[in-house]
Design a protein around this nucleic acid. Structure first.
Length: 286
DNA sequence: TTATCCTCGCCAATTACCTCA
DNA sequence: CCTGAGGTAATTGGCGAGGAT
């Protein structure tokens, strides 16, 4: 049984026990195959890798890309960086829009009172003119593709890589960082879904197996209690073992076991597997 | 050497916004 | 046009690691 999903460029495949011999997912205790990335990529989801700082230079004009799918909101291009944003980010200083950008979360900005005030002021002014309150930009297809490609190779970025990628895409480093965080979260969510599905199937299979075994036990108990049981038994065609002395006997003749054995009523050879895994309380030896 | 503080990066949860049926 | 659902960018708060003192 194989389940596959294709979403957000994620390829999810789940192999169940009957065909998961090739599972190599090390971070999954269930040992079922999980491919949350295109199968061609050797990328390991939870393995942080350090990669070279060099990015292949894009021959595509990022500005052109942005213009293509640029979102206009109330006349404002939320995809366009503020005039000073680039310079600020290059210098490692957040732009007003990304007051929180070079740091993670507001708590960071709380430590930077200046930035915080700046942010508050901007918020206030935003409410006044209602133009830029938490504008939500939609990444262009090209931007998403590049981010996705980068993510396939490495699901985390070091600051240098983040800066380079942001510059290449015309985004703020904070946006790149956020994108990677959200992308990791989506990946994890997908994997959790696959895990749940797998466990669900495991549970179903075990329930069915348990039901089957219970039924088998009941049948064996009924057979054991039945007086005709031994008489109706078809002679075993293979090796048999005496349940009492546990000696293996050859194919049974019509006269029963060898003369060294006692009468069949108390001491009858049984098929080999009949007593295997049988609880002691059911064993004929008493 | 140890304790404390600070910075940074990541994560989980949540919010806010956008798109689409 | 309105609306709800789903997707996702962005925010928030917490935690641990590592460096400085």
């Amino acid at each position: 049984m194989m389940v596959e999903k294709e979403d957000l460029g994620l390829s999810l495949s789940l192999s169940f026990p009957d065909n998961n011999k090739n599972s190599t997912t090390t971070n999954n205790p269930l040992h079922h195959q999980l491919n949350l990335i295109p199968s061609s990529s050797p990328f390991n989801l939870f393995h942080k890798t350090s990669w070279t700082d060099s990015f292949p230079s894009s021959d595509r004009n990022s500005e052109t890309c942005r213009v293509e799918t640029r979102t206009f909101l109330k006349g404002i291009d939320v995809n366009r960086l503020p005039a000073t944003a680039d310079a600020d980010e290059e210098a490692g200083v957040s732009s007003p829009n990304s007051t929180i950008s070079s740091v993670s979360g507001n708590k960071r900005s709380e430590r930077e009172t200046n930035n915080c005030e700046e942010h508050e002021m901007e918020r206030a002014s935003d409410e006044e003119d209602g133009e830029t309150s938490r504008k939500k930009l939609r990444l262009s297809k090209d931007q998403s593709a590049v981010l996705e490609e980068t993510f396939k190779e490495h699901n985390t970025l070091n600051p240098k890589q983040k800066l380079a990628l942001a510059k290449r895409l015309g985004l703020r480093p904070r946006q790149v960082e956020v994108w990677f965080q959200n992308r990791r979260a989506r990946t994890k969510l997908k994997q959790t879904e696959v895990d749940c599905e797998f466990l669900k199937r495991c549970c179903e299979n075990l329930t069915e197996e348990n039901r089957r075994l219970q039924k088998e036990v009941q049948e064996l108990r009924a057979l054991k209690l039945s007086p005709q049981f031994y008489m109706q038994m078809t002679p075993p065609t293979t090796l048999t073992m005496c349940p009492s002395c546990e000696r293996v006997a050859g194919p049974q003749s019509s006269s029963g076991p060898t003369s060294t054995h006692v009468g069949p009523a108390q001491h009858r050879p049984m098929p080999f597997n009949l007593w295997a895994n049988t609880p002691k309380s059911l064993h004929p030896r008493s």
